[in-house]
Design a protein around this nucleic acid. Structure first.
Lengths: 230, 230, 230, 230
DNA sequence: CATGAATGAGCATTCATTCAT
DNA sequence: AATGAATGAATGCTCATTCAT
């Protein structure tokens, strides 16, 4: 399993060398070719890592696997990240960062808890659907051969993000005297498990899964959508 | 990740050498000292494996780690299990076997779905509490590694067992036209996540956690127990 | 390759425990059941070893392989032989002992070098044909699956035996001022290589192979048998 | 035993990493220090392997043995060869490559079978004499293990090479209706055995050995050179 | 004597990481 | 900054051999 605290606290600088304080200089704006290759490399590593984690699972993946897929020299990897864990952290951070504004929007716009819940569950489901897809754009879909693993760094990060968003809302007073930690946990548990089942079905029915999850949490078993009689 | 189908079908013999076909006889009493140390060793390996899996996670754990904690010679391990996976299977099988009769009893005795759900959620929580405890008795609790990994083989086995028990009950007709796969998933998701939170609290309150989980599933957010006003 | 000096000097006692000097006693004659099992075990080990060497090759074969095929306990092996090498030596010795009287007969009876050469080449060919066959008598021929290895301990022993028989005859004066070491070497080289080719053909034609080998040695290329025109 | 087909088909690239497709250029001169140590390492591994195979025999030799003698780190070996078998193949290939043109020259130039046979037998003998010498120059001869193993990868390769050269010539029509497979086998058998004896003598007399072998094959026992009367 | 579990040295191989180029 | 060969610790596993039963 991923170190669960992978995404704690404020977002760290990506580089472990001081991130070039001097890049305020005009040269930084001209993006010398050097600069460009640097971010290309970084992106390549992240992309490769995402794929490898998805295909092999975080634990089974080796730095070598990532490097191999990258095409870079092995030493180059270490100019960007110190270890597998650090790449994972970067991926997680990135995913969290992309999701965060969406969640915040839901928090702020939602009129009631119900619509808020609907919003974030859908956002979460959408995210894991996307995470599932091969990242390298030029890949034919059919190549999605080897069963992709669940629980990638990105997935976990998103999961955590959603959990804390829920907790935040709950704590903001929608639910007096409810054990918000438990409620957030339960909500995210429902989302995770139903999300996983959703991914396994073909075709993927985000709508149905979200409806089920939300109504269960809000009103329990009796409220859950019934299947149409055949 | 653990091979998810680790606990399929009938229970396999533990030994990978033919397990004395003719030993139907109550010969077990004749156990010489040999037989005795054999089961001691087997137990030691299992115990060590449980610990190691709990501390390092299944994937990160190595056979060598298990052996080291065992104190046995490296070759000895392979007299009992062929691989890490095989030990894990044994642990999972064992956990499932211990839980199974309890779950079956609940299924058969429960008057209604509510009491059934109560029964199994409690059983599950009890199990993970036990699984949590360090097996080597003399260990101080504080020594638990910073982030204990969940998802040990035992944990997963129990999880699966509960899930299929729920599915079984649901399919038996209590809930017409409900998507039982989703419902089972949601239930187990709630149990897993709340269970995890429960373990993190001190003191551990099985009762409260179970009440929360069950009432949420049965009647949703409004039904959930309120905290006492301070 | 086999230690080439596996069959040097006089034949050693097979057991590495003093071979029961006291077995002159009448008890030895009654062949107590103990005594019988002992030779059965020894025979079983030798048979198993012969098979294993033939199938896996001497180097690749492990003591474990031999034991496994024997059905005995691993410790038992060491009551009879100290190592793989020692079993091989025993097999080689046995083969040499069985061949030796045949060779001696040829040496003594042969009127001229030609008939002598004929005799021993045939004896050698016969031997490697037999060595090729599975030893366990109850085995169906078709089971001769996995390609059997050449150069078993028995084979090597026989080879050496033939070589020294040739050298002996040569030294006895049939060939004045010939480099007998070279001649013996050449003869045995011809026999070994043609023997190997012979075994590879189907059906095995001992007669033809022997005729070719002998006439080449005696009179060289021009004398060799011609193939029939089609 | 060595995989007999170790030297089949066209010569494979030595490296198992793609061997710089574009390096048709005389770029070899640009060899940086890197390239240089690379080939030094490769040479060191091959040299060590040759020694180890000669001393221990191919089967008994372990990759570790080779590495140890090399002085390199264990991982380094695998930068060059994937396995013991692959080093052996490289050695065999190398030997065959060096011998092949010589044999071809003999085949093409020889006026008659006699001179051809003379040529290749000498070439073969010369080769095994060279192969015999310890490669690390500073080694005392006496250090050769009691029983030097023949059948090193190089030796076998040369052996095969000669055998097929003979077969080629024979098939080209010099000998009508002769069983060329048998004849080639016999020739090579003579060469191998006499060659071995030759190496054991001190001083080594290539000339005498070759004369003996060739005349035996061509005209049989009566034609063989007589020893000078003392 | 037979048994077979325990032992630990040994082996092939992989991997993260360093560092000279 | 990029490279990629070198490194050696670590891993999974096998094997010959011993020894208590």
């Amino acid at each position: 399993m991923l170190p669960a605290d992978m995404l704690q606290g404020p977002l760290p600088a990506q580089d472990h060398e001081a991130p070039e304080q001097g890049s305020q200089l005009p040269e930084a704006q001209t993006n010398g070719k050097r600069e460009q290759t640097k971010s290309q490399n970084r992106a390549a590593i992240l992309a490769a890592a995402r794929e490898v984690f998805a295909e092999l699972g975080y634990e089974a993946a080796s730095v070598r696997d990532i490097i191999r897929r990258t095409g870079l020299a092995s030493g180059t990897f270490y100019n960007y990240y110190r270890s597998k864990e650090e790449v994972a952290k970067a991926i997680a951070t990135d995913a969290a960062l992309r999701l965060r504004p969406i969640l915040r929007a839901h928090r702020e716009q939602a009129a009631d808890f119900e619509s808020y819940l609907n919003g974030i569950v859908r956002a979460y489901f959408q995210f894991i659907i996307d995470d599932q897809r091969p990242w390298r754009p030029g890949r034919p879909i059919s190549e999605r051969r080897a069963r992709v693993r669940f629980q990638t760094p990105a997935h976990n990060a998103v999961y955590d993000e959603v959990e804390s968003s829920i907790a935040l809302v709950l704590r903001r007073g929608l639910s007096p005297r409810v054990d918000t930690a438990y409620l957030a946990a339960a909500t995210i548990g429902v989302a995770r498990e139903i999300g996983e089942k959703m991914l396994a079905r073909d075709p993927i029915d985000l709508e149905g899964a979200a409806a089920f999850a939300v109504s269960l949490i809000l009103n329990g078993l009796p409220a859950v959508p019934r299947l149409a009689p055949e």
